[in-house]
Nucleic acid binder design. Structure first.
Length: 669
RNA sequence: UGGCCUAUGGUGUAACUGGUAACACAUCUGUUUUUGGUGCAGAAGAGUCUAGGUUCGAAACCUAGUGGGCCAACCA
């Protein structure tokens, strides 16, 4: 990491401050703590990037800790997938650890808590307990079991562990405060009885610790200095600290460092969902082919789609770290992968919507193997040979019988360059009974030095290899599919998120291997899918090229609902528009100022005195707003408003102002 | 008895202990180009949610309001 004067994010500021306050740099230690209950997605990448990134910048260890305290949801398959994904991203963890490694230690501490009167066994049903808990606006009430004796609690708890009670009969709770405004402090559960086989500890335990009682303590055991998590854990911090203080008291000699939790805003990406539960639904209901479907925002999906680790890391670096809710535009992710692939992917030619071109003055049997540059961005990439013959395919969209001069492609009577080959001129077309063009007859010219505006990609028909081409569109048609209060996210699924075509590729691509990436020139970046076989190639479209031509034509595309769900354009109050104009007024160029003034005068007709009066109090320094107010006021006065004290005071204050514009405006009254 | 976060161009993030808003994406020009890609040059777009206050000076500090988010699982 080579950031010299890169601005720090708020977490780095905190660390710098801790360091300045005497924390030894050697004590810095971070962790990434996924629950192995699903696949990692792009949202996790942010958390990974933050903690592992911090590890890299401070040269500090980062643990990979599996938070495996709920055996009913966790599986080894997920552990393996998570490790694979993190490694693929290029990060290395100092230790692979598991919360379940600490079950014994946690149990011993819990015993200690009971002895200190800080925890008790409750024996009520979950329904009753839920009632006692209260609501965010209503305090809770104490459990009748809250004051059991230490001896009874100890007895019950050890018997819970011994498996003497059925699930749901008893719980261990921390004794804090049922009236705390923070609901997490209302005697939170520390242990529940659960007879489930754990993927690591098997049947050793039948009581399992809850998240709050496990997470901070695991941080503490590992001597994590900064425990970074997402914003929704902010309310947990109070409990985190409460538990921490107690265990710190028990163990401070062998475990001297008390970790601190800090929270950052999680990543949201437009047009996608980021909840493991919902992603699981897409998999289970067959909307996608699996966790690694190229449309999925999972790391494995992105990988299969052709996103490189580099591009994802770059993306995370660019989105930054802060505490406010955010929705990142997918275009940023796309920018990152294009930027990466532009430098690394070899170019090739492929035609996806073919139309046949016959070069009538090119001999029937002649074949030329022309030289083509693999990647002009990378001198080391070298050259390859591409066959040229009398009959070739070009894209249907690259030909029009008639077109304006803005269309740089092929039209009747027009010339165009074939990439890596000759210049051709279109002379006539052959159509079928439906009027569809079946052949375009052209003549070629060997002189390639001529200046020509358009260049097309093409492929020799008799040399072409075919391949299945999978093109993807966004999975959802809504910018934030899971934020709608009334509709289920499944209602926004884009029915056309996958398009399968047969493409015709230049023959060099026949040898392409799984995972290999190419730029199909003028089309986009493609990689070889894991389904691909030498005799049956399959390509995924990773991302298209930027296309400023496509933007110009009105897109009749039904499957690109890129318009934001605009708020029901309610009419803005004239007064608020005037205010807005006012803010800009003083630094507008003169002609624009005149224009804005006219607009304000127009708007002022719709403004009442009552709306305007509050603006008289506008702070002195906001000259623009006061000018706008004054302009509007003049309109009102002209329309018969009587001067009153407030008006007079406002005007006289304006006359004395240091802003010339304001004074000039006031003088005309 | 409700509490806690949060608010800066369209989007995301900056602005070190207060000195008049920067960077990236997106958008738009022009230029280069055997990719309507890339590169290069440039433009437009924000008085920092609102109203007060402190200050010579506030995006930053204080107060109040408003908007958004989170919190009531024997999930994490």
């Amino acid at each position: 990491m080579s950031e010299e004067n890169k601005p720090l994010n708020f977490i780095e500021h905190i660390i710098e401050e801790d360091l300045a306050n005497g924390l030894s740099k050697a004590k810095l230690r971070f962790r990434f703590p996924p629950e192995p209950n699903g696949y990692l997605h792009i949202g996790h990448t942010k958390a990974i990037g933050i903690s592992f990134g911090l590890g890299e910048t401070y040269n500090a260890p980062v643990n990979l800790r599996f938070d495996d305290t709920n055996p009913s949801k966790e599986e080894q398959e997920y552990v393996d997938a998570i490790k694979r994904d993190i490694a693929w991203l290029g990060y290395t963890w100092a230790n692979e650890v598991y919360s379940s490694d600490y079950f014994k230690k946690l149990y011993d501490w819990a015993l200690q808590m009971i002895k200190d009167g800080k925890a008790y066994v409750d024996s009520q049903s979950s329904e009753v307990m839920a009632k006692q808990k209260g609501t965010p606006t209503q305090v809770g009430t104490n459990s009748p079991y809250r004051d059991r004796s230490v001896a009874e609690n100890l007895d019950l708890f050890t018997r819970m562990k011994a498996g003497e009670f059925p699930a749901g009969t008893h719980l261990l709770r921390a004794k804090i405060d049922m009236q705390d405004p923070n609901m997490l402090m209302r005697d939170p559960i520390m242990y529940r009885i659960m007879y489930a086989n754990h993927h690591r500890t098997g049947d050793d335990w039948c009581i399992y610790p809850m998240y709050d009682w496990t997470h901070g303590e695991s941080d503490y055991i590992e001597q994590i200095s900064h425990s970074l998590c997402s914003l929704e854990f902010k309310p947990h911090r109070k409990l985190y600290d409460w538990f921490k203080e107690h265990v710190y008291n028990y163990s401070k000699t062998e475990l001297p460092l008390a970790p601190k939790q800090r929270e950052f805003a999680r990543l949201n990406l437009s047009y996608t969902i980021m909840s493991k539960r919902k992603l699981l639904r897409l998999v289970e209901e067959g909307v996608v082919s699996g966790w690694d479907d190229p449309r999925m925002p999972t790391i494995s999906g992105l990988r299969r789609r052709g996103y490189s680790p580099n591009s994802i890391r770059k993306f995370i670096e660019k989105v930054g770290v802060a505490k406010r809710e955010n929705v990142i535009d997918v275009s940023l992710l796309e920018f990152c992968i294009r930027e990466d692939l532009n430098k690394t992917a070899n170019r090739a030619m492929a035609v996806l919507n073919p139309v046949k071109v016959v070069i009538t003055n090119y001999p029937e049997d002649k074949v030329e193997w022309l030289e083509a540059e693999n990647n002009q961005e990378d001198a080391a990439a070298g050259y390859r040979k591409v066959p040229f013959s009398r009959e070739i395919y070009i894209e249907k969209e690259d030909f029009k019988e008639e077109a304006s001069t803005k269309f740089f492609r092929l039209k009747l009577g027009g010339e165009v360059r074939l990439k890596n080959a000759y210049i051709i001129k279109a002379n006539s077309v052959v159509k079928d009974d439906n009027g569809e063009i079946t052949e375009i007859h052209c003549t070629y010219n060997e002189d390639t030095t001529k200046k020509i505006k358009g260049t097309l990609h093409w492929v020799s028909i008799k040399h072409a290899v075919t391949a299945e081409i999978r093109e993807y569109d966004r999975l959802f048609m809504h910018e934030s599919p899971d934020s709608d209060k009334d509709k289920d996210f499944m209602d926004f699924i884009n029915p056309d998120s996958l398009t399968i075509k047969t493409g015709f590729l230049e023959p060099s691509l026949a040898r392409a291997k799984v995972g290999e990436q190419f730029q199909f020139q003028r089309l986009g970046y493609f990689n070889v899918d894991t389904d691909s076989r030498p005799a049956a190639l399959v390509f995924n479209k990773t991302v298209g090229l930027r296309d400023s031509w496509a933007k110009q034509k009105p897109k009749p595309q039904a499957n690109a609902p890129q318009n934001k769900p605009k708020q029901p354009q309610q009419e803005r109050a004239a007064i608020s528009i005037i205010q807005q104009f006012g803010k800009k007024y003083t630094n507008l160029p003169e002609e624009k100022q005149a224009k804005v003034k006219l607009e304000i005068q127009e708007l002022a007709k719709k403004v009442t005195y009552d709306e305007l009066e509050p603006l008289f109090g506008t702070a002195l320094k906001k000259a623009g707003t006061r000018i706008a107010t004054l302009i509007a006021l003049k309109v009102l006065l002209k329309n018969g408003l009587e001067r009153n004290d407030a008006v007079n005071e406002f005007i006289s204050k304006a006359l004395e102002d240091k802003n010339d514009l304001l004074v000039a405006e006031a003088k005309t009254l």
